[in-house]
Amino acid sequence: MTNKPVIRVRQVVKEYDGVPVLERLNLDVSAGTLCTIVGASGCGKSTFLRMLLSQEVPTRGIIELDGSPLPKEPTPDRGIVFQRYSVFPHLTVEDNLLLAREFAGAPFAGRFFGSARRKARDAVSQIIGDIGLDAARRKYPAQLSGGMQQRLAIAQALLKEPKVLLLDEPFGALDPGIRADMHVLLLDLWKKTNMTIFMVTHDINEAFKLGTRMLVFDKIRHDPQAPGAYGATITYDLKLDSKNRQDAQEAKSLIASGVFGA
């Protein structure tokens, strides 16, 4: 088995109204990587994730998924969990999970009736149990806690078995205790599916704890005459697998030196 990259990024630049936000991005990420992305606010880490999702298009350069250029719009081969608005507020827990099947199975009506619906409900009841929402199956997202909502969002994002799962600060709004539970859930899912995961976070410890690879985005070139002249890029690319402990050492010294700001 060759280690062909799932995601290949070449010379990507992203500009808004001529002002570069990201520049000189080059990256190969192999299958099964849990890649965490950190950086100061406004350094473009979320923009990078949105480009991986095709929510935004690079101004220049190319991003490839499994060897072919990314589609021009979001598709089921990339799942997404946002910090907020990740689940559908007008649907119950169960209907949120049924939706993907209904999209696939009912092109016009977009919903199942009768026996088709019963069958689909049976199929998702396993998932509802796995994420511990059995008792909340008929509840609306607004009736759930933040942690429950994000568990639902992750389960929903995995329904189409995407090649790449994108997480945009998924646990940023959660309490520390709940966040630790979510880490366990995420690592568990990742080990089971061997999926490639990109996770943007502003919590550096979370990035170290979960990632097998960590990317640090930062702005390194500054022109005092033109503060907007240069964008951010990947300044550190650390492999964090357990065999390679010197990386962890290097990483710890990075925290100590305070490159990440607050």
Partner: peptide, 19 residues
């Protein structure tokens, strides 16, 4: 986010509009 999420779940324009 809701529209994008629906896109990643494989919805068509019509399905996004109606559901």
């Amino acid at each position: 986010e809701l529209v994008i999420k629906a896109e990643t779940l494989g919805a068509s324009s019509w399905q996004i509009a109606t559901r």
